[in-house]
Design a protein around this nucleic acid. Structure first.
Lengths: 324, 324
DNA sequence: TTGTACGCGTTATCAG
DNA sequence: CTGATAACGCGTACAA
């Protein structure tokens, strides 16, 4: 079914049908006729041909490191919700935590082409910077602050600081910190720096040998915690850079250090729902992940439709959650 | 940059450039020239124009109920992995658990058009059936058995039966079951039926008033468990149709029935990693979710590329996991 | 091996 | 208001 055939069946020109479809001038009489034919044939205009003409795909590329993570999937849920409502489709690429692939996909999308790009970032290399700057379509970065594009991110530093103050007040012995690579400026550097600043305010710190660096996985959290507790016996709080790592820490306590379990508090980041339900809630930080997805998508759509690319930086709030 | 401009700069015809791009006859000499021009200009052929001509989008539509669920995001991860490797892009639509939207998106994709469709299904209505049958592109359904399309699903019935036998052997008092809607034939009907069959084999059953129906959420699991335990005092095992519901049950036990916590065992379905780490592992069933995503994507690509649409049904195995 | 010319299904232009 | 007709950028018979 093409627009021409429809035009033929309705006894009008293809232009009239096109106008009918896109809200141009068509007499009531012909409208009626066209609508009937379309109804009967179940005709749908070809998106491809339209795109070729209009250069608008109503497609948004979304690049994520890995979809099976609570925080990322929540962000993605928010994105999908907005995009769907606004009549956009989401082209999703997962990079398996490989920054090289991230760049690769951004290039593919650049050319696909999509109307805009959403990047859920972990690290931003110079490569990323270059693409962000040279991009021909609007881009919104979610999860990291950057001056090279619009971005929406969480206030990791102050959240971590507040948590650090809480931990500093609470601890009577030694405090350990299991972080992630500082190349991730948000989850790595900002959280660690903020946490230490908070501790410092209470006259505490993380001493030499009490700091570990883990991957973004439970297994890694488990391993690092085990290594930590085997060496040190005077820890009463282990703060982790993510709830996933914290879950690994809890696992280690449950499996290998049952005797010390009562004496050690674990804290996390991200307010994982499973963790909260099952443990009754460890001290953690709640970020509005879904909200950041929603806001990010809204920002992007606005940039696309207003056709103005004034970079915007939005910092989202947080809530430190603990029972005491 | 269009193919014509490139042709002009290289002093050849646009056809030559096209052939160069698609591996046709081009003399070494011209190859050299063209490659240089392309290199210099950073030219990329327009995907849209190509699609218009070839009718091949290298796009696969993926329809999921909700991305922020461990099982679904694991499946999606598997899909993304395969698709990326094979040079396909994933067009993702989330339906927010609304079967109406599911149908809607399948229609959109049908026309977009995509080369194939992957549907992670919960319920299959007659509407779904109709689309599955009339579809013009290959479709693979993941997570439900159906005769109307190729599908890949888990052996929910037998897994549940084996778990039922375990529970039947273990229980000394009453057994409760928190299921989900039987409209979901896999997670609803098959698991419940299998579970009851397993119990039956041990001379046990779920008595009147010990059966609840929950949504696919932790909150719902929490509510139903609370309601159940407030009414009944002789339960020693609560089996849940998903690990998410089980997490809600554990939450209820921890918050509201701390005194009975030791005496009640919770079982689940899905082998949620968080749950396993934090609780030390409740009895549950492990399904290869990521595997089903991988297999499903592979099946679909094969159907697309071989251009043969012989429906295939693949049933994946399972592993009942419990410590005793 | 090469280039010309046409067609894919729309939308935009412009004369009626 | 309406209908030809020319693009959009590419692939591919076909003739050379």
């Amino acid at each position: 079914m093409t627009i021409k055939e429809i035009a033929g069946l309705a006894g009008v020109s293809s232009a009239a049908v096109s106008r009918y479809l896109n809200g141009g001038y068509v007499s009531e009489e012909k409208k009626e006729k066209i609508s009937q034919v379309i109804e009967k044939t179940g005709y749908r205009p070809s998106a491809q041909a339209r795109i070729l003409r209009t250069k608008k795909t109503r497609l948004v590329g979304v690049v994520v490191p890995k979809i099976s993570s609570e925080s990322i999937s929540r962000i993605t849920d928010g994105i999908g919700q907005v995009l769907g409502k606004e009549g956009y489709q989401m082209l999703l690429a997962t990079t398996d935590n490989d920054p090289k692939k991230e760049v690769e996909y951004m290039e593919i999308f650049e050319n696909y082409p999509v109307d805009g790009l959403l990047l859920i970032a972990t690290m931003l290399t110079k490569q990323h910077r270059k693409i962000l700057k040279e991009a021909k379509v609007p881009i919104v970065v979610i999860g990291q602050q950057t001056d090279d594009a619009s971005c929406i991110y969480h206030d990791d530093y102050n959240a971590a600081k507040e948590l650090g103050i809480f931990v500093g007040k609470k601890s009577k012995k030694k405090i350990a910190y299991i972080g992630v690579t500082r190349e991730d400026k948000a989850a790595g550097a900002a959280r660690e720096d903020g946490f230490l600043a908070g501790l410092g305010q209470e006259g505490k710190t993380v001493e030499e040998g009490y700091r570990m660096e883990a991957e973004f996985t439970m297994e890694s959290g488990y391993e690092k915690t085990k290594a930590l507790l085997e060496k040190k016996c005077d820890i009463d709080i282990i703060s982790c850079a993510t709830d996933t790592i914290a879950a690994g820490a809890i696992e280690a306590l449950g499996k290998d250090f049952l005797d010390r379990r009562k004496d050690i508090m674990i804290t996390g980041f991200g307010d994982n729902q499973f963790l909260k339900a099952v443990t009754g809630g460890i001290p953690t930080v709640h970020f509005g992940y879904k909200t950041s997805g929603i806001k990010g998508a809204q920002m992007l759509i606005e940039m696309i439709e207003k056709e103005q690319d004034i970079p915007m930086q939005v910092k989202l709030g947080y809530q430190v959650r603990h029972a005491w």
